[in-house]
């Protein structure tokens, strides 16, 4: 069964006259890690809003086509049930903190409170999550006084506590420094290890290349390319379309152009190192 299915989606935000998404169809399979890349304004955030069920219930506008979560159309899901299936984390660490709790521990429990989980279970769950994510030493702090990176981790913890199967993550590190980015990606890696369905929108293409199983390229509201990460990122045409590709891929292209082909286009540094050493086997570097 597919985690999420998009069928012939066409969508316009209210009071606009161009399509934010123009004929998008895609099936997200269970347990896979999907990356969505593309220029700003290509519809990446719109797809995230769709998958979370926020369109059209929250964002209004004109929607054609259907969005199905685990086989059922999104508007047939009760909001509280949908929350336990699809978790959503987005760019701004400041608006994801509720502002109504004065300790991180209670902040994480908000979703569980709303679902009516009994207290002992809530306490255990919150404790376990904070240890797992590495924010245990922040549990007594006021969430409103944390840094951006810390807040983003608390936001992750709050969603992870709801134990959803599917995670939609929209540019979680664009406002963070390298340390914050790394700690967020540690969390994302652990989601991959638990075989959750992850749909990640990111500009940091090097990190995307490391974790994504499949990549979807959006431009002007349409999917222009999709497939296994390696296949998509090795396509030089993307560079012409101003879509980010890892530096190692550009390096691989240049090597080919110089007649020193590496055999395949490496999408991570580790691969590039292996390829170069292979090629240079015997020769002095």
């Amino acid at each position: 069964m597919n985690s999420i299915s998009l069928k012939n989606i066409r969508y316009k935000y209210p009071l606009t006259d161009h399509y934010a998404l123009d004929g998008v169809s895609f099936d997200f399979e269970e347990g896979k890690f999907y990356g969505i890349i593309g220029p700003n304004g290509s519809g990446k955030s719109t797809i995230c809003n769709l998958m979370k069920g926020l369109i059209p219930s929250f964002y209004l506008g004109d929607l054609e086509g259907t969005v199905e979560v685990q086989g059922k159309p999104v508007d047939e899901w009760e909001p509280e049930k949908l929350c336990t299936k699809v978790g959503y984390i987005f760019q701004n660490p400041f608006t994801q903190i509720s502002g109504i709790r004065d300790t991180v521990f209670e902040e994480i429990a908000i979703g569980l409170e709303n679902l009516g989980i009994d207290k002992e279970q809530m306490i255990q769950k919150a404790e376990e999550i904070t240890k797992r994510i590495g924010i245990y030493d922040l549990i007594e702090k006021n969430p409103n006084e944390l840094s951006g990176g810390q807040r983003q981790r608390v936001a992750f913890a709050s969603i992870l506590a709801m134990d959803t199967d599917i995670y939609v993550i929209d540019e979680p590190t664009s406002q963070l420094d390298p340390d914050g980015t790394e700690s967020v990606f540690k969390i994302i890696r652990s989601l991959k290890e638990q075989k959750k369905t992850v749909i990640l929108v990111e500009h940091k293409i090097e990190l995307m290349a490391k974790y994504a199983d499949e990549i979807i390229v959006l431009k002007d509201g349409k999917i222009i390319k999709s497939g296994p990460a390696r296949e998509v990122l090795s396509d030089y045409d993307l560079v012409n379309k101003k879509v980010a590709v890892p530096q190692t891929v550009l390096f691989g292209h240049e090597m080919e152009r110089a007649g020193k082909s590496l055999g395949k286009l490496p999408i991570t540094i580790d691969e590039a190192e292996v390829c170069v050493r292979e090629r240079m086997r015997g020769e002095q570097l």
């Binding site: 390298p178 090097e206 890892p246 530096q247 190692t248 550009l250 390096f251 240049e254 090597m255 110089a258 020193k260 540094i269 590039a272 190192e273 170069v276 050493r277 090629r279 240079m280 570097l285």
Partner: peptide, 27 residues
């Protein structure tokens, strides 16, 4: 962290190279 190309060139023992063309020429 170093940029990718720089990290790659370091791992290959070629020092710190910033530009892709430079690295390609060195190999």
């Amino acid at each position: 962290k170093k940029p990718q190309i720089c990290e790659l060139s370091t791992r290959l023992g070629l020092g710190n190279i910033m530009k892709i063309e430079t690295l390609v020429n060195k190999l």
